[in-house]
Amino acid sequence: MRSFVAIEIISKEIIDSIKKIQSEFNINAKPVEIKNIHFTLQFLGEIDENKLNQVKDALERISFESFDVTFTNMGAFPKAKFPRVVWIGVDEDSGKNLIELAKKVESSLSPLGFSSDKPFTPHVTIFRIKNKPNDITEELKRYKNVRFGIQNVKNFKLKKSELTPSGPIYSDLQVVSAKP
């Protein structure tokens, strides 16, 4: 099964901010469904049942404390002139905490043969662009230094991803909670 490790966006304030941006942002792109917006700590790809149990055991041993994430700024990958993805980022402290957690996930899964193909960049994708993209540099400037809200991260999840013609369907395989 296709799987990944993620932090879901559950804050009503942030969800409302994202919905507003998705309705106002001037772009010819498909918005990511609100229920599917998340931070991907690590993409695992296809894993079988045996590997799944090993992954669950490794993730369960990760110890972390809950922390707040402040959502701010917007950007695009690979760049605003030729975007394929539009994202919302986080402030510096939030980024450090998310990177630290992503490193814990990666180091716990590394002995099982998993590795990240690129360094973790704290962001949530809100648009995917399939067709010929327009330069959105000016549009992004409107959201420079805008704060979209704060979410307390109390857990992360191992998720299953089923690809369908109407988009991915995600389901939970495991929840790993912060230690008190």
Rank of each mutant, 00 (worst) to 15 (best):
V69F: 07
E13W: 06
I126E: 00
G167E: 11
D117T: 12
G89E: 10
H38M: 07
K144W: 10
K154W: 11
Q151I: 06
D57R: 12
G167C: 09
S17M: 02
G75K: 00
F127R: 04
F77G: 09
S161A: 08
D57V: 06
P180Q: 10
L101M: 08
S63Q: 13
E46N: 14
E49L: 14
A178Y: 08
I136A: 01
G45R: 05
L112R: 08
T72W: 09
L173D: 12
D93V: 13
S110W: 13
L44N: 08
N152H: 15
V124K: 00
L140Q: 07
L140C: 10
V153P: 01
P31D: 00
S115A: 12
V85Q: 03
V176L: 06
S110K: 13
K12Q: 15
H38E: 02
S3E: 12
T121P: 00
E46H: 13
G75M: 01
K35P: 02
K179I: 15
V69C: 03
P31A: 03
K20T: 14
I88Q: 08
K157S: 15
P111S: 02
T70N: 14
S107P: 01
V69S: 09
N134T: 12
F114K: 04
L44K: 02
S11T: 00
V105S: 07
F120Y: 13
R84V: 00
D57E: 15
V85E: 03
G75N: 04
K96H: 12
Q54I: 10
R2C: 07
V90N: 05
S171M: 01
N73R: 03
K159Y: 14
G167W: 11
I27N: 00
R84D: 08
E100V: 05
P31R: 03
P31V: 02
V5C: 10
A29Y: 06
H123I: 01
E13G: 04
E92R: 11
A29R: 02
D16E: 14
K130M: 01
L41V: 00
A29H: 04
L109V: 09
V124F: 10
K35S: 08
L112M: 08
A102D: 07
A178Q: 06
D91E: 05
K79F: 15
T40K: 07
I14A: 06
S94Q: 10
L140P: 08
F120A: 02
P165T: 03
K56G: 07
L112N: 06
S66Y: 10
S11Y: 07
P133I: 01
N145D: 15
K141N: 11
K96T: 12
E138P: 03
I150E: 14
S115M: 11
L163A: 07
L52H: 08
K96Q: 11
K96C: 03
V153F: 04
K144T: 14
L109G: 09
D117W: 04
T125F: 06
R147W: 10
L173C: 08
A58C: 09
N152F: 11
V146E: 15
G45F: 03
I18R: 01
S94W: 12
F82H: 14
V69R: 02
